[in-house]
């Protein structure tokens, strides 16, 4: 079984507005191979920017982000999941998967769609799929590009709670079978409690790690009570800073 890469994040400086305080200043974070780390914090703290640095999309910062000792921009592209499904509306589900990685065969695309519970939907256009199904196609697409490193940017935002539970189940199964390294950006402690082995709470400007929790039980085996406990723990750390 393959394992995910180790991430070494060292951002010495990053600022959008020269007049304001920098967004990042001496930020350090190491992520062990095949761990699922939730980055929790208020909006605007720099979570998404951090994810884009790891994804090699954002390269305008001082410092280094290493994916298995290779700079993020030269590393193989990560499986990125955006806030919206972001499918190309003129391509079918299968072609959307193949668009980002042409080496994927139609059979492989169909197999991936089956893994996210969309068997038989290969030739549907995005507008023929529900919002939740579109998200699952996006997940399959990310997974087709890189099953070893998943970067999830608020992937459950604007989904109702039933759909979130459904997506989380799909995601847990994928993570369980392929053991990728995954970074999950979210502002909801509940998302972290449902999926992550470790939660890093971020706050402030420049951003810093205010709490770093590692959980004993694996996410798939947590009871409702355990999840609530974890969520409360994270929420307390996040509000403790705000207060």
């Amino acid at each position: 079984m393959s394992t995910g890469p180790r991430l070494q994040i060292e951002v010495d400086g990053k600022q959008f507005d020269p007049a304001a305080a920098p967004l990042f200043d001496g930020f350090r974070l190491t992520v062990e191979p095949s761990s699922v780390v939730a980055l929790v914090g208020p909006s605007g703290v720099g979570k998404s920017t951090l994810l884009r640095m790891v994804g090699g999309i954002d390269q305008t910062f001082a410092g280094t982000v290493l994916v298995d000792d290779v700079p993020a921009a030269s590393a193989p592209p990560a499986g990125f999941v955006f806030q919206d499904a972001r499918l190309l509306p003129w391509l079918t589900a299968s072609d959307n998967i193949r668009a980002v990685r042409p080496e994927t065969t139609e059979a492989e695309a169909a197999a991936l769609l089956m893994r996210v519970g969309l068997a038989g939907f290969e030739h549907y256009y995005p507008h023929e799929l529900s919002g939740g199904m579109q998200r699952r196609v996006a997940l399959a697409r990310a997974f087709s590009v890189n099953p070893r490193l998943l970067l999830l940017d608020e992937p459950f935002v604007s989904l109702d709670r039933t759909l979130v539970a459904e997506m989380e189940q799909v995601l847990l199964t994928l993570i369980d079978t392929s053991q990728p390294t995954a970074l999950l950006v979210t502002h909801l402690p509940e998302d972290a409690a449902a999926l992550a082995d470790r939660a890093v709470v971020l706050a402030g400007r420049p951003v810093r790690v205010v709490a770093d929790y590692r959980f004993e039980t694996s996410p798939g085996h947590r009871s409702r009570v355990e999840r609530e406990h974890i969520a409360n723990q994270i929420a307390a750390a996040a509000t403790g800073v705000a207060a």
């Binding site: 994804g55 090699g56 955006f82 190309l88 980002v100």
Partner: peptide, 24 residues
């Protein structure tokens, strides 16, 4: 611009982006 970001995230080469993202 969201599609530009998609192209960058998955390192889609220019020719493929032209064909699958810009032209449509």
């Amino acid at each position: 611009p969201a599609y530009d970001e998609l192209g960058r995230a998955f390192r889609m080469p220019f020719a493929r982006r032209l064909r699958l993202v810009f032209l449509p």
